[in-house]
């Protein structure tokens, strides 16, 4: 049996009339947030304004510094250095292509047999690295021509040799029946020389002793052509 509630002295609340709990929204966060945001924006603006002034000052300083650096740059010095550098490079190129034609003649002297004679000779500079020598030669026999061809071919100083136009003039008794004529063999030769084998070498190196056995000396050029022709100190030459 269910207990009676009417007998209790404790007031009972009717479940139907139970008061609804009022749900309170937490509006405390909004004032804090609004205040914080507002103050933060004000402070950030102030800080940013000051920082901007500082950054602008830094920029002005950097610009001034650059202008000073540019102002310190000396165009005249730059042109002087460029001029010197250009001149030096050109001098190097010129020295690198400065060959001694006397060396060519000496080489040909060395590798040519005594029985072979040059009738004419022409040296032409093909480019900065090659010189060609065309010559008409004459010798007494075909054996001499063969020997000479082998000698030229064996020379390491001559880049290439080409013999052509070989003609034989046989010897015999002259029309008067008394004198005899010698036979001869004529041929053309074309030699090619590489400039690195015949580069001009100063005759006396600077600092070489006066009695040095390894230096070749010639009559001082300055003594034969006083003003225009003197030794170039840029080439470390003393004549």
């Amino acid at each position: 049996m269910p207990p009676s509630t009417a007998s209790s002295f404790i007031p009972k609340r009717n479940p139907v009339n139970r008061p609804k709990s009022v749900r309170r929204y937490n509006f405390v966060i909004i004032p804090i947030l609004s205040y914080a945001l507002f103050m933060a924006s004000i402070i950030a603006s102030g800080a940013l304004f000051i920082y901007q002034i500082r950054v602008h000052a830094q920029l002005a300083s950097a610009v001034r510094n650059l202008e000073e650096q540019i102002g310190n740059f000396n165009d005249t010095d730059l042109n002087r250095v460029i001029d010197f550098d250009q001149r030096l490079e050109l001098a190097n190129k010129m020295v690198a292509s400065h060959v001694s034609l006397g060396s060519i003649l000496s080489i040909l002297e060395t590798v040519t047999a005594e029985t072979v004679q040059f009738k004419n000779l022409k040296i032409d500079r093909k480019d900065d690295h090659t010189l060609t020598v065309n010559a008409a030669l004459v010798t007494s026999s075909l054996d001499g021509a063969l020997f000479q061809r082998a000698t030229y071919a064996a020379s390491s100083l001559i880049t290439s040799t080409k013999l052509s136009g070989i003609s034989l003039v046989p010897g015999g008794v002259a029309s008067d029946g008394k004198t005899t004529t010698k036979g001869s063999v004529g041929f053309s030769a074309e030699f090619t020389f590489s400039t690195d084998k015949i580069l001009y070498k100063p005759l006396v190196q600077e600092g070489a002793g006066a009695g040095s056995a390894h230096t070749e000396t010639i009559k001082p050029v300055s003594s034969i052509a006083p003003k225009p022709v003197v030794a170039s100190s840029s080439k470390k030459t003393t004549l």
């Binding site: 400065h98 001694s100 034609l101 040059f118 004419n120 000779l121 032409d124 050029v221």
Partner: peptide
């Protein structure tokens, strides 16, 4: 040729013809 080679400015021989 030696004297020309030793000149203080370059005198480059571009061609040389020899004939008796």
């Amino acid at each position: 040729l030696k004297v020309l080679e030793a000149n203080n400015y370059l005198l480059q021989v571009n061609s040389l013809s020899l004939a008796p």
